[in-house]
Design a protein around this nucleic acid. Sequence first.
DNA 1: GGCGAGAATTAAATCGTTTCAATTTCGGTT
DNA 2: AACCGAAATTGAAACGATTTAATTCTCGCC
Lengths: 335, 335
Amino acid sequence: MALAQVTDVAARAGVSPATVSNALNHPDKVSAKTRERVRQAIEELGYVRNDAARQLRQQQNLAVGMIVLDIGNPFFADVARGAENTLGELQRPLLLGNSSQNAERELTQLRLFEEQRVAGILITPVGDALQRLGQIKDRGIAVVIVDREAGADEFSSVSTDDVLGGRLAAQHLLELGRRRIAVIGGPRIIRQVADRYEGARTAASALEDATVQLWDTGAMDSQAGRDATKTLLALPAEERPDAIFATNDLVALGALQELTRAGIHVPEDVALIGYDDIQFAASATVPISSIRQPAQEIGARAARLLVAAIADPSASVQHPVFTPALVARESTLGP
Amino acid sequence: MALAQVTDVAARAGVSPATVSNALNHPDKVSAKTRERVRQAIEELGYVRNDAARQLRQQQNLAVGMIVLDIGNPFFADVARGAENTLGELQRPLLLGNSSQNAERELTQLRLFEEQRVAGILITPVGDALQRLGQIKDRGIAVVIVDREAGADEFSSVSTDDVLGGRLAAQHLLELGRRRIAVIGGPRIIRQVADRYEGARTAASALEDATVQLWDTGAMDSQAGRDATKTLLALPAEERPDAIFATNDLVALGALQELTRAGIHVPEDVALIGYDDIQFAASATVPISSIRQPAQEIGARAARLLVAAIADPSASVQHPVFTPALVARESTLGP
DNA sequence: GGCGAGAATTAAATCGTTTCAATTTCGGTT
DNA sequence: AACCGAAATTGAAACGATTTAATTCTCGCC
């Protein structure tokens, strides 16, 4: 059974296909009476427009694609929700993809979005996809970088100041008297990791006796946190850190689990701070200190910038930067 | 600047458009030499196929749509990842949508998927979308229900036995001597909520003096958990429950926060159990007992059933049911 | 060297919608 | 009652790929 299409609707309503199309897309061009007749025919036949044909003819797709690093991370889930809500209000469908911090999957997703001829792409890139994104932009697809400042001024970006965030975290630990800070997260090519680490080092450089070392984990989930922590605990006592700065809260939660399991007291023996301030950080066994980023707002802002770039490709690029904030809890302060 | 298309590639490679298409879609029909020439022309021109045109001509879309109740809930994020991985292996793009437990958004998403002519839909329906889904199936789009048993045998479904899960939770509480169980979650039209509640009541009906009451929250997030708990705490002491069964872990986490804030001891004063066993349940202030469901496996299984249904629409429907398991932690057992 | 089978290539039709330009209808005026 | 401009409607072309059926090559063999 073939699906109903415009010609069927037109026949049923006793008008031409062109009029059906107008009734749907330019209602002001059609008399009220005809509009109603078409509406009824559509209803009776259960007509659903074929978006492929529409796109082909219109030479454009309203939809926007988004690629996040890890949809299982509540931080990115929130960013995605922020974007989704904003785009929804603007009647733009969102195609949500997930790179799992995997460059190959990222490319697959990008290719898919290109084939779909999406109007724009929101992306938190894995490593160095910038060149590829440049090509995409040249193809007329708007691009906005999410949660990372785009160095070049080719695309707009929305970010928080990760260097500052790293500094805030380390300063907090240093002020509490900690001197050996282990930064855990990775891989290093992820810009967020590099920036947060850099911020932490900057903070420590002010003090003679403070050290900051990066332990590169392959991923950024709680498993990575557990693994890295095991490594740290295996160190000789004098090399063991007195503070851990996890580059996101999932990693911090994993670290906390492993520390607890090993009977290490947090924060007495080792202080712990995470990043993102996902809602679960506050309700952890030991509530985890963190650096807060306004997740939903980041997504919403990125969506708005993207839509603006779609509407006017020549509009000047912008790089709004949100300011992260320290949220101190028991994992650093103690009870 | 127009994008390159098959004719351009054909011209560059010195062949006809038909050959370019064959090189792409039926490589075995094209000589190795020609294939290579086409490949090169594609590369030089940066040709990216227009999926709308392809779909229109082929009369089919490989992509699959998925609608989850709440992408911010790690349980559904995991289900989605399970589905995504499986579909990825089968070369099928996944369009991920989020209903936020909102029937209207669900309809919007479904409409979108219909217009896209997706090959199939994976959905955890809000309330009573079954009739609508029937229409969709009649249109030739395969449907598989996720995380809820479809009563009718119109579509396949993948679920866990939520009635059993509810029973396990309540039995556990009853065995620990609790007698006044408050079930919090909602809205009630969500099948999971109704089933888990029913299971709990069944368990209690075996005991003379046990009561189970449902407190319907509008949503299923931690805010709902906090609000419901506030209501419970405002009850006169003799009506106050000695155990709370939250219909998912987000709600349980919210409840725990509110209990802690009010100085109520968990589990001494009030025992608490959640549902889903998301990873954050184990690392909560007081580790939360929960009912585990194999999230990723559910998603993967649903994806496989869907692909099978797409391949053979007349294939018999199946209703695999996973068995939930109690995971007892401190929030019921104590230290 | 010619023949024929199978491989390789291609011309032209087609998918379902929207749009452009052209035509028809309508309401109001003189 | 004829006419005019604006509003409403329509026929036919167009979007960019794939497919079918027909045509052209290739190569081994007699």
